[in-house]
Computed example of a mutant assay.
Amino acid sequence: MWELHLQMELAHLQQAADLLRRHDGREPEEIVGSAGLPEPVTFEPNKDYLRHLLATQIDLTKLGEGYVTEAHERFEWMQQQVHDGQKPPSEQVIDMHRERFGDEYRIETEGPHPVEGLRAEEGGVRRA
């Protein structure tokens, strides 16, 4: 899959270079520079970062120019309007998973969930 997309991107780059030569009379190096392209992005584990975000920002909501941790009336009203008094679809899917498989869908490979209310109990079921 990665190779396919790489080949497509390289083909786009080649076409853009050809168009630049044909219609602008310039070489791509004049725009990109002679040093070449920057090093490619590397994919690295980010579990610690995501766990930190969950532990410190899961309850943040926007209020005016800033963020607040308490659920304010406007946010609660918006949630009520969007979900029509029901649980959000994502929570419904999680509940169906628990009913079908009897355990929590979250895998706590890095230790307990950073948010206490979302941690699995003994047997794998989330605390309510």
Rank of each mutant, 00 (worst) to 15 (best):
H5E: 02
H5D: 03
E9C: 11
L10Q: 09
L10W: 01
A11T: 01
H12F: 10
L13K: 07
L13H: 07
L13R: 05
Q14C: 07
A17I: 01
A17M: 06
R22Y: 06
H23R: 08
D24I: 15
D24W: 11
R26A: 07
P28T: 02
P28A: 14
E29Q: 11
E29A: 15
E29H: 14
V32A: 01
G33A: 00
S34P: 00
S34Y: 04
A35P: 00
G36L: 02
E39M: 12
P40A: 08
P40R: 03
T42Q: 10
T42F: 09
F43C: 04
E44W: 12
P45Y: 02
K47M: 14
L50I: 07
R51I: 10
R51M: 15
H52T: 10
A55M: 11
I58D: 05
D59Q: 05
L60Q: 05
L60M: 07
T61I: 03
T61Y: 12
G64A: 06
G64I: 04
Y67L: 14
Y67T: 07
V68K: 06
E70L: 11
E70M: 12
A71Q: 14
A71L: 13
H72T: 15
E73D: 06
R74N: 14
R74Y: 13
F75K: 00
M78L: 10
M78R: 03
Q80L: 14
Q80V: 04
G85H: 10
Q86A: 09
P88M: 05
P88N: 06
P89D: 07
S90W: 13
E91F: 08
E91R: 04
E91P: 01
D95L: 15
D95R: 09
H97D: 10
E110K: 09
P112N: 02
H113A: 02
H113P: 01
P114R: 07
V115S: 11
E116S: 13
E116T: 10
G117P: 08
R119L: 07
R119N: 10
E122K: 11
V125R: 12
